[in-house]
Design a protein around this nucleic acid. Structure first.
Lengths: 116, 116
DNA sequence: CTGTATCCACGAGGATACTG
DNA sequence: CAGTATCCTCGTGGATACAG
């Protein structure tokens, strides 16, 4: 990410990891779901209610994606009735800094674009 | 972003700025374009060549988006022939930290998912 | 409650050609 | 060189209904 080599194709080497990260974390809902779970919404229904406008189909799909990327964990409790909980993984905590930077920048950007 | 309030709708307050940021910065090409320009590709053609598979139509559109968000500047030089240069704005530098975090996390995530 | 199953609309983005 | 113009494909995601 440094500025040593003006031109060149290590340019690509910089792009690809960023794309990898965005593939996981961008999209219309993924971050919102993570934030919701982080705010202690564990049940499918709770998450669904916490995110305006999301549909159950989309939520189900996104949860699967996040699980595949090891960012959340799906736990089935064999109670009656069966209950299911989603929680963030330890690994997902590594996203903290990314999320904070995005949050901070997003707040500022809204001011920058709309404000002045 | 802290963990004080377990539940609640400041949850939404956390989500929205993140979405704002991602709207600007995510999408298939925007980050790659920024990285390319940062690597000193200034001309339309140079940027196009530096990013595999992008089409001129899409590049043109994305450049306009980025310009609207004040992340790049389009400068027309009235030489013969006219030349046009894209450069990052000062403001775009505020994305540095975001980009670095994404880059770092993306690198690590590839190892995490594929590696082990 | 926790999802699946269908059907459908829309917009992002690809392919190709062309213009000033 | 720096884009536009068309046309077309495809995936995301919305609406609704339904199942275990």
């Amino acid at each position: 990410m440094a500025k040593e080599k003006p031109m060149s194709e290590n340019c690509l080497k910089d792009m690809l990891p960023i794309r990898d990260a965005l593939d996981v974390v961008s999209g219309k809902w993924k971050m919102m779901i993570l934030v919701s779970i982080k705010h202690n919404n564990k049940r499918f229904r709770d998450i669904e209610r916490s995110i305006p406008k999301i549909s159950s189909k989309v939520l189900a799909k996104e949860l699967k994606d996040l699980e595949q990327h090891k960012l959340i964990k799906r736990t089935v409790y064999d109670d009656y009735p069966v209950s299911i909980e989603y929680t963030m993984t330890e690994y997902a905590m590594s996203l903290e800094k990314v999320m904070n930077e995005l949050h901070t920048w997003g707040l500022n950007h809204r001011k920058e674009i709309l404000g002045k």
